[in-house]
């Protein structure tokens, strides 16, 4: 099956950004880029997690977020956050076709996680074709 794939250069750039994110907070333990239709493209996980399954789930939840926003007559869903007793999962759209998901423990402040994720998304969006 033909799937969306980064060029070597883009992949290297992604990994560089992922490393920066991971070093910014030791609470972050998973970063995943997937397509809007649920295929995994790039990742850096410090824990063993099923990237392909998470990719499909992230695409579903982001699409649901966008649909719920539209039903509630709100515009442009920016993030979907799943807040759990022991962590956060933050998902946001990255250009037209991609989704960035960041998985962290509660040791990070949600505002900080927001900021790290948004900055990374901006940098990634500027470089990835």
């Amino acid at each position: 099956m033909t799937q969306y794939k980064f060029s070597e250069k883009s992949e290297a750039f992604c990994q560089e950004i992922f490393a920066q994110m991971l070093s910014s907070s030791d609470a972050i333990y998973g970063i995943l880029i997937s397509t809007v239709d649920g295929h995994d493209v790039a990742k850096n996980f410090r824990k063993d997690m099923p990237a392909s399954k998470l990719s499909a789930m992230m695409s579903s939840i982001l699409a649901l977020g966008e649909t719920i926003a539209a039903e509630a007559q709100q515009q442009q869903c920016r993030y979907v956050i799943v807040e759990n007793s022991d962590g956060y999962i933050l998902t946001l759209k990255l250009k037209d076709r991609l989704v960035l998901s960041v998985i962290a423990t509660t040791r990070v402040n949600l505002g900080m996680l927001h900021s790290v994720s948004r900055n990374a998304a901006e940098k990634l969006a500027a470089h990835i074709r």
Binding site: Q3, V36, D37, S59, S60
Partner: peptide, 23 residues
């Protein structure tokens, strides 16, 4: 209908531009 269509990025894109990802 409420849709959760997103762009297709794989082989399916030759058949349809969008696909349902949630419901």
């Amino acid at each position: 209908p409420v849709r959760t269509d997103t762009r297709t990025t794989d082989d399916l894109s030759s058949v349809k531009e969008e696909t349902t990802v949630a419901m």
